[in-house]
Amino acid sequence: MSISTSPALRLRGLHKTYANGVQALKGIDLEVNRGEFFGLLGPNGAGKSTIIGIVTSLINRSGGSIEVFGINTDEDLEGAKRLIGVVPQEININQFEQPLRIVAQQAGYYGIPWREARERAGECLRWMGLWDKRTAMSRTLSGGMKRRLMIARALVHGPRLLILDEPTAGVDIEIRRATWSLLEEINDAGTTIILTTHYLEEAEALCKKIAIIDNGRIVKDTDTRSLLRQLVTETFVLDPMQPLERAPTLPGFATRLREDGSIEVDIEKGVGLNELFHALDDAHIQISSMRNKANRLEELFLRLVDESKGRAASAPEPNEVTP
């Protein structure tokens, strides 16, 4: 298959059974198109990091196949690796090395000669706002700087596929938002991005396509918009100008009064917000502000994971695929 037409990543029947017998992946089929910003979501232990580990060859797979831009990793692992940049979940930089050296060395591992490697490293560090820290010991960098250093390191060889495993885990909101902006810029430049995250608002904000994985299986793989359309109801919290003493009766809407005097309103799929505001007007309730009760994707995610768990509980466990 030509590199120009093949998907950025294609997984077929990916299985992983660890030495302790844990079946982390039970047949993952996944396709990520070129240029996509792809989200891989799932609860803890679902298998997200295992997928990333296998794709980046940090974990040996038990079965299945991987293609990166049409390059089968069984046939040309080194060729496939050249196209990938990875930012792992855990901080994995050499704490006793300088950022400039860390990034330049990474370029060297990809076969980029030292002089050019240093130039590329400098460019990446400048872009990440780390140029002033280029000769500092990495252990002295803040958590956010270390994250950015890992991103610089992943970008230095110009990967076509950037894989980030929970890049904003444990960082403050400012750094998280800055990272989002950064990733959008990288994606805008044509780099395919695969992101795993626990923060569902992150996936909703960034990802055009989302796959939800649970218990080693893909339970949903679709574009974000379609996924959100599957929401049956959405709950909003409305803050009235004057606190209410009881939940108002709004025809066509279920309402509940909250302790702070605000109200929760369930809006069913297909019902516009205008209708809600008409009903509020009719009830002479003035609203000062409104917000989603929960992230929309979060609600859907929980529902899908619950459904997946229900199916897993009722279905017999399939036989393990021989590695």
């Binding site: 050249r82 460019e123 872009w127 706002g129 970008l155 400012e174 938002r177 800055a178 805008d188 430049a189």
Partner: peptide
């Protein structure tokens, strides 16, 4: 869309637009 922090983009260039992929 989130804002970038002030200390980023010191060159104003996105290296993914200027760095050639080794591939």
């Amino acid at each position: 869309k989130p804002e970038a922090t002030e200390d980023r983009n010191q060159t104003g260039r996105n290296p993914m637009q200027t760095l050639r992929s080794i591939s």
